[in-house]
């Protein structure tokens, strides 16, 4: 067998107002159970999905911050946020939600903030890219 196929998800739409990001999360959780090398990159309005402390109660929808908090448990640990998209939206690293905790130190793990050029380099290595 060849090595694991690299598959990247991109999240570019805002988290609420449509179902794209929520249903896209369901795809990631399923796909993580398969034999593939999964990464997720949040960019454009997608970075807003990573804001900590979202309250969707008034929207009458379940929300998914709790599920994002378990991404590392689902073995999705390559989670990235585009630095420029965050800056454009007034977000800093302190705004990012937690996606799991380090097994040894129990330190919270947050998405890694990277530059667009790094994202481009990662994209070039992917077998396939799924925009969700």
């Amino acid at each position: 067998m060849s090595e694991k196929k690299k598959i990247m998800f991109t999240v570019r739409k805002p988290p609420h107002g449509t179902i794209y990001v929520y249903e896209g999360l369901e795809v990631k959780l399923i796909m993580a159970a398969y034999d593939a090398d999964i990464s997720v990159v949040f960019m454009d309005d997608g970075v807003l999905a990573l804001k900590a402390g979202q309250n969707t109660k008034e929207l009458g929808i379940k929300g998914f911050e709790a599920t994002y908090g378990a991404l590392v448990d689902y073995e999705i640990s390559q989670v990235y946020a585009d630095r420029q998209s965050m800056e454009e939206r007034g977000m800093t690293e302190d705004d990012l939600l937690v996606i799991g905790e380090d097994e040894d130190t129990e330190e919270p793990i947050r998405p890694q903030v990277i530059d667009s050029s790094e994202i481009a380099a990662m994209m070039a290595e992917q077998h396939n890219i799924l925009p969700f």
């Binding site: 796909m31 396939n128 799924l130």
Partner: peptide
């Protein structure tokens, strides 16, 4: 069928082409 089918497509296809908004 399930999302596993999409997974297998993403793994086995040379290209996944997405049509959306």
């Amino acid at each position: 069928s399930g999302l596993g089918q999409l997974t297998m497509m993403a793994i086995e296809a040379d290209r996944v082409v997405t049509f959306g908004d």
